[in-house]
């Protein structure tokens, strides 16, 4: 699990929310013309992610809405549990993917 796979997951989550929210954004006065192009981009990105990780992402999204959440000042911004400082150091190097022990979401360190 390298950093890039986590980044792909983050891009996927950002895309999924962008698609979900597109109608609300359109109501504000923005012109939305590329829904189908974006859905294709979404599927292309999803195809690059390993099946088990994608499955885990989809399951977490269904259950908790956000599958990956940021961590700031060692706090999980999904459930606000403090994360062990040692984990943060490892996570920033991108060698491993970490999960919040409290809420089960995948974690992305912002700082």
């Amino acid at each position: 699990m390298g950093n890039s796979e986590l980044e792909q997951l983050i891009s996927l989550q950002d895309l999924d929310l962008m698609i979900e929210e597109s109608q609300e954004v359109e109501k504000l006065g923005f012109s939305i013309t590329g829904c189908s192009e974006l859905r294709i981009a979404r599927e292309e990105l999803a195809a690059k992610i390993s099946k088990p990780l994608l499955f885990r992402y989809e399951r977490l999204r269904k259950k908790l809405k956000r599958a990956i959440v940021p961590v700031k000042n060692d706090i999980c911004l999904g459930c606000f549990l403090h994360q062990p400082t040692a984990i943060g150091a490892q996570a920033r190097e991108g060698v491993d993917l970490f999960t919040c022990e409290n809420c089960g979401r995948m974690l992305y360190w912002l700082d």
Partner: peptide, 11 residues
């Protein structure tokens, strides 16, 4: 990347 994709959805 996210901002570019947003532009793909519509300027």
């Amino acid at each position: 990347e996210m901002l570019r994709q947003r532009e793909m959805l519509g300027s």
